[in-house]
């Protein structure tokens, strides 16, 4: 016991055992400003730090739940499950990686699609689950994305997709590369029908996902300070052998270089996307 602790009267002294009785996860720390935050507050704030506005990564299901109206919601392609057609094995079997990711996330793969409403407007929304193998795009992600597009076409309603992905899923080899062509072709079809597609890029959106469905929005939207790009910063650094400029490949950099239309704070996402979508679909202002 240190001298300071000895000074404190014993009834308000906190020892190690007592500390552990505090429920875990009641507090969270902002990775950007180190502020200690009450988790309930943070959640009410959509996982945006109330002190510094840092947008923390959030899961796909929570993303859709906070973006869509509470009712109605109908999941798209939920019955699709990944298979290990190539019997791929690196340090671990792909099959085991899948099982592990499924257990950890409670999801069957890295994309969730839903038909629902945004402020009473019917639409399709999809979100990538970054915790599922880095949100990588394999066959199930590609197929679910296409089914979302098909649903949007069938009902003539807009499609909004939130990306968070490291890129293609290497364990599905060339099949994963082909998902880039598959999803882009579906978007081309939807575009011909005059159905709006909004791509919202969140941290991070890289590689094959960035170089296909993420950059093809009628509107490309980004959350503040998200890492967005084709090649990873480390790969670029190794190639060009120079230090990357401050803020390189962040949303603000993309806005400045003309790659995204706007940066939208997560807390304003519903309002601003709803407003734009009513204009794109010729509906009166809400």
């Amino acid at each position: 016991m240190s001298w300071l602790e000895k000074l404190i009267p014993s009834r308000i002294r906190i020892d190690g055992r007592q500390k552990k009785t505090v429920p875990e996860g009641l507090w969270a720390k902002c990775p950007a400003c180190d502020a200690v935050l009450y988790r309930a507050d943070l959640e009410r704030n959509l996982d945006v730090c109330p002190k510094c506005d840092h947008h923390m990564r959030i899961g796909a299901r929570r993303r859709l739940e906070t973006f869509l109206d509470e009712e109605p919601r109908e999941e798209i392609g939920a019955d699709l499950e990944p298979v290990d057609a190539l019997k791929f094995k690196d340090l671990k079997k792909y099959k085991d990686r899948l099982t592990q990711a499924q257990k950890a996330t409670g999801e069957t793969d890295a994309l969730i699609g839903m038909k629902g409403e945004l402020k009473g407007m019917l639409l399709v929304a999809a979100a990538f689950e970054f915790k599922f193998m880095g949100g990588s795009m394999g066959s199930v992600v590609g197929e679910r994305f296409v089914r979302c597009v098909d649903t949007a076409i069938e009902h003539n309603i807009p499609f909004v997709c939130f990306t968070a992905s490291g890129g293609a899923r290497m364990q599905e080899a060339l099949f994963s590369l082909m998902q880039m062509a598959k999803t882009s072709a579906a978007l081309a079809k939807m575009s011909r029908r005059g159905i709006p597609y909004i791509s919202v890029m969140t941290d991070p959106t890289m590689g094959g996902v960035s170089a296909s469905l993420a950059m093809l929005g009628d509107l490309n939207v980004a959350e503040p300070k998200a890492l967005i790009g084709f090649a990873g910063p480390r790969v670029i650094e190794q190639t060009v052998r120079q230090t990357l400029p401050e803020g390189f490949q962040r949303s603000e950099f993309l806005l400045e270089h003309g790659a995204v239309d706007m940066i939208v704070d997560r807390r304003e996402m519903r309002d601003r996307l709803a407003r734009v979508l009513t204009m794109l679909t010729g509906k009166p202002a809400a």
Binding site: A185, L216, I236, T239, V240
Partner: peptide, 23 residues
């Protein structure tokens, strides 16, 4: 994978070609 390529939208350039070639 270079700084200039990222600045000028490498991702978009690739994505756009996939989109265009499909149709």
């Amino acid at each position: 994978p270079g700084i200039d390529a990222e600045e000028r939208g490498q991702s978009e350039a690739i994505a756009r070609n996939l989109f265009v070639m499909a149709q």
